[in-house]
Nucleic acid binder design. Structure first.
Lengths: 199, 199
DNA sequence: TCTGTCCTGCCGACCATATGGTCGGTAACC
DNA sequence: GGTTACCGACCATATGGTCGGCAGGACAGA
């Protein structure tokens, strides 16, 4: 029953979690030693599992993307069968991630922090493409999807970086986006969907 | 007529521009020496104008925030007198910043990159507050404003980090947001503005 | 069940280097 | 002539990464 002292999977998890927390708080500048100590491992131990700093950061990015995808999956409402159910799950996942008690930082935030790491931009691109395809399969008007997800992402970023946004405001945007994902009329009265408007 | 060889303001500008470009491309990790060389100055010269690395980054954040505010000001349509004119200018400024030929990086992007620098979060908070007040004075429904600006910011972030988003898609969101800022009906059919909806 | 052996997770000590910052000096502008 | 923008040389330190070694655990054979 006692946890094994040596367990590769467990140690990697520990390191990745520590790295996520520290990078979110202090940026990519954190030293390997600090991350290692925070994870309860020596720097050498860390380097044993991640051959270099860069590799650790790439692994972190992959892990966060996967965690977020899992969160969206978990947020899918099983009773919901209409088009846009995935978009709704996306919105829920993003905003639940923003709740103060949530420790795991939002994927967008971490992604932006890691975007300067070689290799990570490719990951982000591939991930974005995957989402786009999933949303197409979700059956909602692509325009609407782009608007909703952009707004969710933007709210996430501001929420984290622009200081504590009033939770009630966030909650309101959340509800608004969910409602938008269900609305069937044109987004804007007088604006035909699909026909760009002239300014 | 010859430009002065020694000009504090000019040198600071050169350094800040170089810093903005390099930080956007490589993250906050860039060394002072690289920034200095890129600006055509020695590291000592740089340090003469910015007493420390941290001070340089804070100054950079301030500068970018100011540049963006100026861009929004410049994007105000003088013939537009309805509520939401500032929001429309904001949207235009954000999306114009996203155009490929634009060198100056978007404020949100740089802000996120700099958010880990001590002192910068306070700047961001103050800036966000200032914007919120300005939007209140702009006279548009706050809900709508939050939705529109969040979406603009989110589109900006994805545009930069998730790889080249199809320009046509971006353009479409831009038009959609502008239209949204003019729409007078409820955002979502059946959802009364101001009354949060139950999921 | 005990023992020996191999694999490997993990560590401390060490190294090379990059980088932030200091200092004294030079010369351009007032 | 004084102020100061700017430079080259230098220093202290932090950090990424290497290396040799220790020991925990799985497994084989007795």
């Amino acid at each position: 029953m006692s946890a094994p002292v040596r367990d590769t999977a467990r140690t990697r998890r520990l390191v990745l979690d520590a790295a996520a927390e520290l990078v979110a708080a202090q940026g990519v500048g954190v030293s390997l030693d600090v991350i290692a100590r925070h994870a309860g491992v020596s720097k050498s131990g860390l380097l044993h599992h991640f051959r270099s700093r860069e590799q650790l950061l790439v692994a972190l990015a992959e892990d966060l993307l996967a965690q977020f995808a899992a969160a969206v999956d978990a947020a899918v409402d099983l009773a919901d069968h209409g088009p846009g159910r995935l978009v709704r799950a996306y919105v829920r996942a993003v905003f639940d991630d923003l709740r103060p008690e949530q420790v795991v930082p939002e994927h967008i935030v971490l992604s932006t922090a890691l975007a300067a790491v070689p290799g990570v931009p490719d990951l982000l691109r591939a991930d974005a493409l995957r989402w786009r395809e999933a949303f197409v399969a979700d059956g909602l008007d692509p325009q609407r999807v782009l608007l909703i997800t952009s707004a969710a992402d933007g709210a996430a970023v501001s929420g984290v970086y622009e200081g504590s946004v009033d939770p009630a405001r966030l909650e309101h945007v959340r509800e608004l986006l969910l409602a938008l994902s269900r609305g069937e009329g044109p987004l804007v009265p007088g604006l035909a969907s699909g026909a760009p408007h002239q300014v």
